[in-house]
Nucleic acid binder design. Structure first.
Lengths: 386, 386
DNA sequence: TTGTAAGCGTTATCAC
DNA sequence: GTGATAACGCTTACAA
């Protein structure tokens, strides 16, 4: 599409010059042609680089403005000046955590003039690699990714990183990669959740969680154990279950746990799905909250709100994680910090406690008067002897 | 990065030639240089166009394979052969409907070799226009969009469409644009919801809905009215409320409605948010479901599941809408159908009825024995005289 | 059947 | 200060 096509000479001579409308796309060539100067001059004027005649510059700017000139990002990319696009690879978009994270990413990216190209790995290692390759072939300026649960070998990312490609991991990170990472403070979150359950009078806290090899799983488990330890409760591995539970698999798991010699009096779940699955299972089995058990989830705010008032929760700061991750990545891309310290940023989680977690007051009162030994030795009595 | 850099001549002469590893990026030049032929020959061999010496072709293919050659999509775009990317513009990613829709879009796009570039309008007309402009400047092959609630003037899209840019609208569509549209069957969905409430014994059904000028709002209202009419109930505009309610604005609305001379005995809400807000408001006011009122929402499946068993719902087929929209768009881009009929595709909605909507059996029984006139004349008596 | 050269929009490196 | 020119990776007339 050439300028002359829209702006015949006669128009050029009129006092009111042709003005571009929405989405007509002009190039520096068009500007050069109208002003009878060379494209290089136009280019220079536009980015104000070399010393250029102020008058020429003014003319160029004015003309560019009038024609609504927009540099062609594709040509820029070909020249190697970056695409101002970042690739985001997540396991699933239709997962509240990730869609909120993407929301945060997009907000930052937009403000800083970047675009977001989304890829889903669908929890498949192979597809994740393909996605990365695709993103690179589109010459994204950087990569933001949350690893698939299948991914254990990250050498392909290390190669990339060694080649200088800016990479930031978020949420699902790998300890085998020395890149910037942004995660929720899973340890503190799990600690707070467990502590809250203990302070609510619970002693046998089951923990339903996801794949054991994920860093987030390990951190949460560590927080859970640390809280138990602080209150002198023994860690019982029978109470911890790992997996990729479908909605109908949580029920049997709950049954199994409730059939233990000493059944749990609380559940701490590690995800939206698990929280919902567990809640449903408990309801179906006519177990009431908080009389029979407590439930606390590691969930996203909106999900927690939907489930309210049944669910106490540790809120995952999904959006903020996305924001911080995007910020760090773009800083890296633009080399804001010559030597950005490669480290892990932990975003604080928030505990939202609902009454449903807490034992009824009269039982709490009884608990308070019991000696600590008493509490430890016969914990379930206090809870289920209602 | 040149081939010679990785593949010194000596290597070339060995029986086991150099093989590229992940993400080394070679060009047709590299292939040409290694095979001592011209880049054009390589290009032709690669896309099998002109008749080319089968042997040459074989050599080229083999070499391309070995070097893991990937055409540079940016160079292709510059040539004007399309970017194999589609722009998706939605009001909000972190909205379950849209994230599911995007999920469907991405799935189809991936299968057909396209990438998805996401933009959020944040319900702002201005930003929507900016997004479209950005998408076009990135030379996306087509546009998939769901209009912001602020958008009433769509001439900018008409211009684009007239220029031949493939466009498909989904969910939030405009009647002023003659493009392919993909929407949920809002009329039937609303009809089914309303009918279900009526069949569950309700007679004064309030309808909380979103902005009145949106097509989806109008279609739903039409379905609601049609169902009322079918059962001989009069339409009362006092029972219909429009708006962009925040979570704390639904409560007062519910109060207002319950304070009407003849209060509603059911609520039909038009979105996740409204359903949740309404549910919360009812709970806070100690109104029980279904004893006091019924509630049915126009929501997404996962949200409904989260709220289960409190909420009967008409499920929005978000993912399928995304899939169909993406399919139609890519068909358009690839001109599968020379003259694709421009029309509106309506994806069926599904009614999920939970017991919570239905009046208790003994009341239903009383209702059944009452004469139709009786039912019409004193509807609330039947419902609230429990 | 293959090679040469122009061009897509832009910037950088030269000259002038 | 400004204008040619080459280059980015690729496709495609046109020539050979």
């Amino acid at each position: 599409m050439n300028f002359s096509q829209f702006c015949p000479l006669t128009t050029l001579l009129t006092p009111l010059p042709y003005t571009a409308t929405f989405l007509e796309t002009f190039t520096i060539k068009d500007i050069a042609r109208e002003l009878n100067i060379s494209t290089s001059t136009v280019s220079r004027a536009l980015r104000g680089s070399y010393e250029i005649n102020p008058e020429t510059k003014r003319l160029v700017m004015e003309c560019a403005e009038r024609l609504n000139y927009r540099p062609n990002p594709i040509a820029l990319s070909l020249k190697g000046s970056g695409t101002r696009a970042i690739g985001v690879i997540v396991p699933q978009i239709a997962n509240y955590f990730f869609s909120q994270a993407i929301n945060g990413i997009e907000a930052i990216a937009y403000n800083r003039g970047y675009h977001v190209i989304i890829f889903q790995s669908h929890e498949s290692y192979e597809r994740e690699v393909a996605n990365v390759e695709q993103a690179m072939s589109r010459r994204v300026d950087g990569l933001l990714l949350s690893l698939s649960s299948e991914t254990s070998d990250v050498t392909y990312l290390r190669e990339l990183h060694d080649k200088g490609v800016p990479i930031v991991l978020f949420d699902r990170v790998s300890s085998e990669l020395e890149v910037t990472k942004v995660v929720a403070d899973n340890f503190k979150g799990a600690f707070a959740a467990t502590e809250h359950l203990i302070q609510s009078g619970r002693r046998r806290i089951a923990h339903l969680t996801i794949q054991p090899w994920l860093s987030i799983t390990q951190e949460r488990l560590a927080g859970y154990r640390a809280a138990l330890e602080k209150y002198g409760l023994t860690y019982d591995e029978n109470l911890v279950r790992y997996g990729t539970f479908g909605p109908n698999e949580v029920g049997p798991m709950v049954d199994e746990l409730m059939a233990l010699p000493v059944a749990p009096d609380a559940f701490f779940t590690a995800s939206d799905r698990l929280a919902v699955g567990c809640l449903t299972a408990l309801r179906q089995r006519n177990l009431t909250i908080p009389d029979d058990v407590s439930l606390i989830g590691f969930t996203n705010l909106n999900v927690a709100e939907l489930l309210s008032p049944s669910l106490s929760t540790v809120v995952q700061p999904a959006q903020e994680i996305g924001q911080v991750a995007a910020e760090r990545l773009i800083d890296l891309i633009e080399r804001k910090h010559r030597a950005q310290p490669v480290g892990t940023v932990r975003i604080a989680t928030e505990l939202i406690a609902r009454d449903s977690t807490r034992l009824p007051e009269h039982i709490m009162a009884r608990l308070a008067t019991a000696s600590p030994e008493d509490q430890k030795s016969k914990p379930r009595d206090f809870v289920l002897s209602i």
